[in-house]
Amino acid sequence: MTFLKAALLLFVLFFLLPLGVSAAVYAARGAGTDWWGADRSSAGLLPPAAASGAVVRVFAAPTVRWRGIFAVHCWIVFKPEGAPAYTRYDYTAWGEPIRMNGFAPDGRWFGQVPEVVFAADGEAAAALIPPMRAAIAGYAWRNLGDYRAWPGPNSNTFVAAVMDAVPGISLTLPPTAIGKDYPYDGRWLRPTASGTGLRLTLGGFAGITLGWVEGLEVNILGAVAGIDLRRPAIKLPGLGRIGMRGPDGTGLPPTVAAAR
Protein backbone atom coordinates (compact mmCIF):
# COMPACT_ATOMS: atom_id res chain seq x y z
CA MET A 1 0.00 0.00 0.00
CA THR A 2 2.86 2.36 0.78
CA PHE A 3 4.26 1.84 -2.72
CA LEU A 4 0.85 2.45 -4.30
CA LYS A 5 0.36 5.64 -2.29
CA ALA A 6 3.79 6.89 -3.32
CA ALA A 7 3.09 6.07 -6.98
CA LEU A 8 -0.26 7.86 -6.82
CA LEU A 9 1.33 10.92 -5.20
CA LEU A 10 4.02 11.07 -7.90
CA PHE A 11 1.36 10.74 -10.60
CA VAL A 12 -0.61 13.63 -9.12
CA LEU A 13 2.46 15.85 -8.69
CA PHE A 14 4.14 15.19 -12.03
CA PHE A 15 1.16 14.53 -14.33
CA LEU A 16 -2.19 15.77 -13.06
CA LEU A 17 -1.02 18.97 -11.35
CA PRO A 18 1.02 20.28 -14.33
CA LEU A 19 -1.91 19.55 -16.66
CA GLY A 20 -4.21 21.45 -14.31
CA VAL A 21 -1.89 24.45 -14.30
CA SER A 22 -1.64 24.34 -18.10
CA ALA A 23 -5.44 24.23 -18.38
CA ALA A 24 -5.75 27.27 -16.11
CA VAL A 25 -3.21 29.21 -18.20
CA TYR A 26 -5.07 28.23 -21.38
CA ALA A 27 -8.38 29.44 -19.96
CA ALA A 28 -6.86 32.71 -18.72
CA ARG A 29 -5.43 33.67 -22.10
CA GLY A 30 -8.48 32.54 -24.09
CA ALA A 31 -6.29 30.66 -26.55
CA GLY A 32 -9.22 28.81 -28.13
CA THR A 33 -11.27 31.90 -28.90
CA ASP A 34 -11.95 32.56 -32.59
CA TRP A 35 -9.32 30.01 -33.64
CA TRP A 36 -10.74 29.81 -37.19
CA GLY A 37 -9.80 33.46 -37.79
CA ALA A 38 -6.55 33.39 -35.82
CA ASP A 39 -3.37 34.91 -37.24
CA ARG A 40 -1.23 32.50 -39.29
CA SER A 41 1.21 35.07 -40.67
CA SER A 42 5.00 34.88 -40.41
CA ALA A 43 6.39 35.32 -36.91
CA GLY A 44 9.66 36.70 -38.32
CA LEU A 45 11.80 33.81 -37.06
CA LEU A 46 13.61 33.08 -40.33
CA PRO A 47 16.15 35.15 -42.25
CA PRO A 48 15.14 36.27 -45.77
CA ALA A 49 15.47 33.23 -48.02
CA ALA A 50 17.35 35.02 -50.78
CA ALA A 51 19.92 36.43 -48.38
CA SER A 52 20.83 33.22 -46.52
CA GLY A 53 22.63 29.96 -47.17
CA ALA A 54 21.27 26.52 -46.31
CA VAL A 55 18.82 26.52 -43.38
CA VAL A 56 17.08 23.81 -41.36
CA ARG A 57 14.54 24.52 -38.63
CA VAL A 58 12.10 22.51 -36.54
CA PHE A 59 9.30 24.58 -35.01
CA ALA A 60 6.73 23.75 -32.35
CA ALA A 61 3.59 25.63 -31.29
CA PRO A 62 0.55 24.77 -29.14
CA THR A 63 -2.05 22.82 -31.07
CA VAL A 64 -5.47 24.18 -31.98
CA ARG A 65 -8.16 24.78 -29.35
CA TRP A 66 -8.29 22.72 -26.13
CA ARG A 67 -5.59 20.33 -27.34
CA GLY A 68 -3.13 23.17 -26.81
CA ILE A 69 -3.46 22.55 -23.07
CA PHE A 70 -1.21 19.52 -23.29
CA ALA A 71 0.24 19.22 -26.80
CA VAL A 72 2.28 21.07 -29.42
CA HIS A 73 2.33 20.68 -33.20
CA CYS A 74 5.81 20.36 -34.73
CA TRP A 75 6.85 20.97 -38.32
CA ILE A 76 9.99 21.04 -40.48
CA VAL A 77 11.38 23.87 -42.59
CA PHE A 78 14.48 23.78 -44.77
CA LYS A 79 16.13 25.63 -47.63
CA PRO A 80 19.21 24.51 -49.60
CA GLU A 81 21.83 27.12 -50.39
CA GLY A 82 20.76 29.20 -53.37
CA ALA A 83 17.08 28.27 -53.11
CA PRO A 84 14.81 31.33 -53.42
CA ALA A 85 12.25 30.11 -50.85
CA TYR A 86 11.80 27.89 -47.82
CA THR A 87 10.00 24.54 -47.94
CA ARG A 88 7.72 23.62 -45.05
CA TYR A 89 6.42 20.15 -44.21
CA ASP A 90 3.53 19.44 -41.84
CA TYR A 91 1.68 16.23 -41.10
CA THR A 92 -2.02 17.03 -40.66
CA ALA A 93 -5.43 15.44 -40.14
CA TRP A 94 -7.00 17.00 -43.23
CA GLY A 95 -6.26 16.24 -46.87
CA GLU A 96 -3.10 14.39 -47.76
CA PRO A 97 -1.32 13.83 -44.43
CA ILE A 98 2.05 15.17 -45.61
CA ARG A 99 1.35 18.80 -46.47
CA MET A 100 4.03 20.86 -48.25
CA ASN A 101 3.96 24.66 -48.01
CA GLY A 102 0.43 24.76 -46.65
CA PHE A 103 1.36 27.60 -44.31
CA ALA A 104 4.02 30.31 -43.94
CA PRO A 105 7.34 28.63 -43.06
CA ASP A 106 7.57 30.34 -39.66
CA GLY A 107 3.88 31.17 -39.43
CA ARG A 108 1.94 31.48 -36.22
CA TRP A 109 0.01 28.28 -35.57
CA PHE A 110 -3.55 29.59 -35.32
CA GLY A 111 -2.36 32.65 -33.42
CA GLN A 112 0.38 30.99 -31.36
CA VAL A 113 3.99 32.07 -31.99
CA PRO A 114 6.14 28.98 -32.62
CA GLU A 115 9.29 28.05 -30.73
CA VAL A 116 12.49 26.98 -32.49
CA VAL A 117 13.39 23.53 -31.16
CA PHE A 118 16.15 22.78 -33.66
CA ALA A 119 18.28 25.00 -35.87
CA ALA A 120 21.18 24.52 -38.25
CA ASP A 121 22.66 26.86 -40.85
CA GLY A 122 25.28 26.83 -43.57
CA GLU A 123 27.29 23.65 -44.15
CA ALA A 124 25.72 21.93 -41.13
CA ALA A 125 22.25 22.48 -42.60
CA ALA A 126 23.30 21.50 -46.12
CA ALA A 127 24.45 18.08 -44.87
CA LEU A 128 21.10 17.45 -43.17
CA ILE A 129 18.77 18.24 -46.07
CA PRO A 130 19.37 15.19 -48.37
CA PRO A 131 18.62 12.55 -45.68
CA MET A 132 15.64 14.60 -44.53
CA ARG A 133 14.22 14.65 -48.05
CA ALA A 134 14.76 10.89 -48.37
CA ALA A 135 13.03 10.25 -45.03
CA ILE A 136 10.03 12.40 -46.04
CA ALA A 137 9.74 10.61 -49.39
CA GLY A 138 9.91 7.21 -47.72
CA TYR A 139 7.66 7.91 -44.73
CA ALA A 140 5.33 4.94 -44.35
CA TRP A 141 2.30 6.69 -42.83
CA ARG A 142 1.60 8.95 -45.80
CA ASN A 143 -1.82 7.77 -47.00
CA LEU A 144 -5.29 9.17 -46.39
CA GLY A 145 -6.59 7.88 -43.07
CA ASP A 146 -3.14 7.21 -41.60
CA TYR A 147 -3.18 10.26 -39.32
CA ARG A 148 -4.24 9.65 -35.72
CA ALA A 149 -4.07 12.47 -33.20
CA TRP A 150 -3.42 10.04 -30.36
CA PRO A 151 -1.28 8.12 -29.70
CA GLY A 152 0.01 8.51 -33.28
CA PRO A 153 1.11 8.62 -35.98
CA ASN A 154 0.56 12.38 -35.90
CA SER A 155 2.53 15.53 -36.73
CA ASN A 156 5.09 14.89 -34.00
CA THR A 157 5.54 11.26 -35.05
CA PHE A 158 6.33 12.48 -38.56
CA VAL A 159 8.93 15.01 -37.39
CA ALA A 160 10.52 12.49 -35.02
CA ALA A 161 10.77 9.90 -37.82
CA VAL A 162 12.35 12.33 -40.28
CA MET A 163 14.88 13.63 -37.79
CA ASP A 164 15.65 10.09 -36.55
CA ALA A 165 16.79 9.33 -40.10
CA VAL A 166 19.51 12.01 -39.93
CA PRO A 167 22.71 10.64 -38.37
CA GLY A 168 24.10 12.55 -35.40
CA ILE A 169 21.39 15.19 -35.24
CA SER A 170 20.76 14.79 -31.47
CA LEU A 171 17.32 16.39 -31.60
CA THR A 172 14.99 16.13 -28.60
CA LEU A 173 11.42 17.19 -29.31
CA PRO A 174 9.55 18.96 -26.49
CA PRO A 175 7.95 16.71 -23.86
CA THR A 176 4.62 18.19 -25.00
CA ALA A 177 5.13 16.78 -28.52
CA ILE A 178 2.61 13.99 -27.94
CA GLY A 179 3.11 11.27 -30.53
CA LYS A 180 6.89 11.65 -30.73
CA ASP A 181 7.33 8.23 -29.07
CA TYR A 182 4.91 6.39 -31.34
CA PRO A 183 6.72 3.36 -32.93
CA TYR A 184 6.44 4.59 -36.53
CA ASP A 185 8.65 1.76 -37.78
CA GLY A 186 7.11 -0.96 -35.58
CA ARG A 187 10.09 -1.09 -33.21
CA TRP A 188 9.01 -0.77 -29.60
CA LEU A 189 12.61 -0.80 -28.35
CA ARG A 190 15.08 1.35 -30.22
CA PRO A 191 18.08 3.65 -29.67
CA THR A 192 17.19 7.27 -29.01
CA ALA A 193 17.65 9.78 -31.83
CA SER A 194 20.91 10.99 -30.28
CA GLY A 195 22.29 7.45 -30.08
CA THR A 196 23.06 8.02 -26.40
CA GLY A 197 20.31 5.86 -24.89
CA LEU A 198 17.26 3.65 -25.40
CA ARG A 199 13.53 4.23 -25.79
CA LEU A 200 10.90 1.64 -24.89
CA THR A 201 7.36 2.42 -26.03
CA LEU A 202 4.23 0.33 -25.67
CA GLY A 203 2.54 1.39 -28.87
CA GLY A 204 2.83 5.05 -27.90
CA PHE A 205 0.44 4.58 -24.97
CA ALA A 206 3.22 4.28 -22.39
CA GLY A 207 6.97 4.02 -22.29
CA ILE A 208 10.28 5.17 -20.92
CA THR A 209 13.27 6.92 -22.49
CA LEU A 210 16.74 7.09 -20.99
CA GLY A 211 19.62 8.83 -22.76
CA TRP A 212 22.39 11.32 -22.13
CA VAL A 213 20.86 13.88 -24.50
CA GLU A 214 17.20 13.02 -23.87
CA GLY A 215 17.49 12.54 -20.12
CA LEU A 216 14.87 10.41 -18.37
CA GLU A 217 11.31 10.58 -19.71
CA VAL A 218 8.29 8.61 -18.54
CA ASN A 219 5.34 8.43 -20.95
CA ILE A 220 1.87 7.72 -19.55
CA LEU A 221 -0.92 7.84 -22.15
CA GLY A 222 1.20 10.22 -24.23
CA ALA A 223 1.89 12.69 -21.42
CA VAL A 224 5.60 12.93 -20.64
CA ALA A 225 7.34 13.79 -17.38
CA GLY A 226 11.07 13.60 -16.85
CA ILE A 227 14.35 15.13 -15.87
CA ASP A 228 17.43 16.28 -17.78
CA LEU A 229 20.70 16.06 -15.86
CA ARG A 230 22.93 17.14 -18.76
CA ARG A 231 21.22 20.54 -18.93
CA PRO A 232 19.44 20.55 -15.57
CA ALA A 233 15.69 20.82 -16.11
CA ILE A 234 12.43 19.06 -15.42
CA LYS A 235 9.92 18.08 -18.11
CA LEU A 236 6.23 18.26 -17.28
CA PRO A 237 3.01 17.47 -19.17
CA GLY A 238 1.38 20.60 -20.54
CA LEU A 239 4.09 22.91 -19.19
CA GLY A 240 7.01 21.47 -21.15
CA ARG A 241 10.64 21.93 -20.21
CA ILE A 242 11.45 24.07 -17.16
CA GLY A 243 15.11 24.78 -16.42
CA MET A 244 18.40 25.39 -18.20
CA ARG A 245 18.17 26.20 -21.87
CA GLY A 246 20.67 26.23 -24.72
CA PRO A 247 23.58 28.71 -24.96
CA ASP A 248 21.56 31.05 -27.19
CA GLY A 249 18.44 30.86 -25.02
CA THR A 250 16.36 28.79 -27.44
CA GLY A 251 16.52 25.51 -25.58
CA LEU A 252 18.63 23.89 -28.30
CA PRO A 253 21.22 21.26 -27.37
CA PRO A 254 24.66 22.92 -27.07
CA THR A 255 26.10 20.89 -29.97
CA VAL A 256 23.37 22.15 -32.26
CA ALA A 257 23.40 25.73 -31.04
CA ALA A 258 27.16 25.88 -31.55
CA ALA A 259 26.69 24.96 -35.20
CA ARG A 260 24.40 27.90 -35.84
Rank of each mutant, 00 (worst) to 15 (best):
V117L: 04
M163G: 08
G20R: 04
A54M: 01
I129P: 07
K5E: 12
L216I: 06
S52L: 02
P62Q: 12
I220A: 01
R148H: 15
I129T: 03
A43L: 10
D146L: 06
I178F: 08
L171K: 02
Y184G: 08
V162D: 06
R99W: 07
V159M: 12
V21N: 01
G32D: 02
A233Y: 13
A71R: 02
V213G: 02
V213N: 12
I98D: 07
R108M: 02
V72P: 04
I242P: 09
L46W: 02
A61R: 03
R88Q: 15
A27S: 15
R65M: 07
A85P: 02
F103Q: 15
A23E: 00
A83T: 02
R241D: 06
C74A: 15
G195S: 08
V159G: 12
G243S: 15
P18T: 05
W212V: 09
D39C: 00
V213T: 15
L17E: 09
G204K: 07
L239W: 11
K79L: 05
Y184E: 11
R260N: 15
V77Q: 07
W94P: 11
I98L: 10
I69A: 03
L17S: 03
I76P: 12
A206M: 09
T250H: 08
G102Q: 14
T92I: 11
R142S: 13
G243H: 13
N101P: 13
A135H: 07
R29H: 11
Y184T: 15
I234R: 05
D121E: 11
G20L: 06
L252D: 03
M1W: 12
G37Q: 13
L128T: 03
